[in-house]
Design a binder for these strands. Sequence first.
RNA 1: GUCCCCAUCGUCUAGCGGCCUAGGAUAUCGCCCUUUCACGGCGGCGACCGGGGUUCGAAUCCCCGUGGGGACGCCA
Length: 525
Amino acid sequence: MGDVRVRIAPSPTGDGAHIGFARTTLFNWLFAKHHQGTFVLRSEDTDAERSKPEYEEAIKRDLEWLGLTWDEFYRQSERSDRHREIAQQLLQSGAAYESYETPDEIQAQQTRAQQEKRNYVYEGKSRLMAEWLAEGGEKAQKAQTQIDVWKTEGRQPMIRFKIQDYAWDEDQNQWISLPKPTYREKLEQNNAVVVPDLIKGDTAYEFENPALGKQGAVVSDLVILRADGTPTYNFAVVVDDMDMKISHIIRGDEHLNNTPKQMLIYAALDMPMPQFAHLPMILDKTKKKLSKRRSEMDVYISNYQIKGFLPEAIVNFLARLGWSHGDQEVFSVDELIQAFSLDTVGLSPAVFDDEKLVWLNAHYIKTGDPIRLAELLRQQLVTDDILSESDAAALPSEKLQETVTLYAERASTLSEMAETGRFLFREDFAYDEKGVEKFIDADALTLLGEYAQNIEQAGDYSVSGMETFTQGFLDRKEKKFKHLAQPARLALTGQTKGAGLFETLTFFEQQNVVKRLQRAIEAWQ
RNA sequence: GUCCCCAUCGUCUAGCGGCCUAGGAUAUCGCCCUUUCACGGCGGCGACCGGGGUUCGAAUCCCCGUGGGGACGCCA
């Protein structure tokens, strides 16, 4: 498959990686790993308004947390000289030209389009001047005069890339046809630019031409360099992908319509095309594009981290969003790398619903390494304000591991584990009211009291030892286990649910058990 | 409005012309296990958007509808 080089190109404008981006990243990463290729991270920070260094850091942090590490890193803003250089090159070759319209004039064109109930296209006055200039003769004179006027007005030109084959002619008061740029001519088959896509197959784009009354994709001459010399997205992407020798562009579906424009730039530069693969998007529960602003759900990876999700669960979950491998649901990272292929990426968009993520997370908690989970739980206890940082740090790892074994089968997230297990680390828990009502009466209090008194005599303070001891105790009192179990659980944990009684019991020091039992009895008298 | 993409259980998906009275997972419901809660085991409910073709045969191929989504910037 040659040298596989893929990239992801986030714009650092949000608070870290969100679900959709993480999924695209994962697919790129898996593709690179599968082919022993190179995975490039490129920060598209050319939007000076919205881009911030801390956002870039947040994205890196999230990707690292997920284990999606990159081989090379670039910052688009640091490449503007190169972008200008290529823009100049296009200018020299006649594929691009200087465009002098002011924002107000463009606005006016948009308004005009709206009034005439047609799609906005760039009317191409500067384009026409460029054509005339190239033509020479009288027209060129006229064009030069116009350009000189613009210049004396102090207008700073931006640079546009030639795509359209029409322009509005003011003199004739009508749309006129222009010759197609040669690279467009070369690229088109049956008057259409065909995007070959590894996932979608071929998509043909025929362009609109108002001069011919032809409907089609709305494509105007593309602004590639703003008046201030900064590049625009569609242009910078091509230059960067070209320079970075990207072999496969794997990105969201929403970019499919950009692809013909980008292909045209490759063609104008006479550069080889990368292969394209457009992934179906991820939708929110209302079936709209998953968005940071609109979607009323967690879209940030970091939020899932805070809620106690494991990175391997998220990776596994994300992998199965739009990709499948037969009936297999659970994949280790190595299995994913092994099995991943663009051939088995689906075509339809997937709704993001975290139900299955919760299940997967529970699975990974159940099967995970207790030593690692113990440390994660330690952090979670702090995150969830159950323990102070110093108290959490002081906890012995064994106690945390014990907690993990006690609750791994009962918790879907680390946060849930920390929350349901909070009584293990704190004395100030409340008793479940319904439970007290249901299980605590005079008999239960008496039994608990006697049990508390006897417990100190238990010789073997282990799970099995306590089981034997308790059975003996109950036999003497002629009581069944069910008479003791729930009252004791309530007294020790405040809850009517939880791990086995003896496992819970032996989690504590023997004296602490007595203390907790007595405290509960006092509270219930 | 124009262009583009998509269409199987609530959700994620398998299916690439006969293996389909459509499979798995999740969610949900029931039963079992059980000191509680879970886990686990077993079972139930639940889908091929509609209409035309093509074919001996269509969830699968084609066309037309319908529905959903996306893109139409000096944002990325």
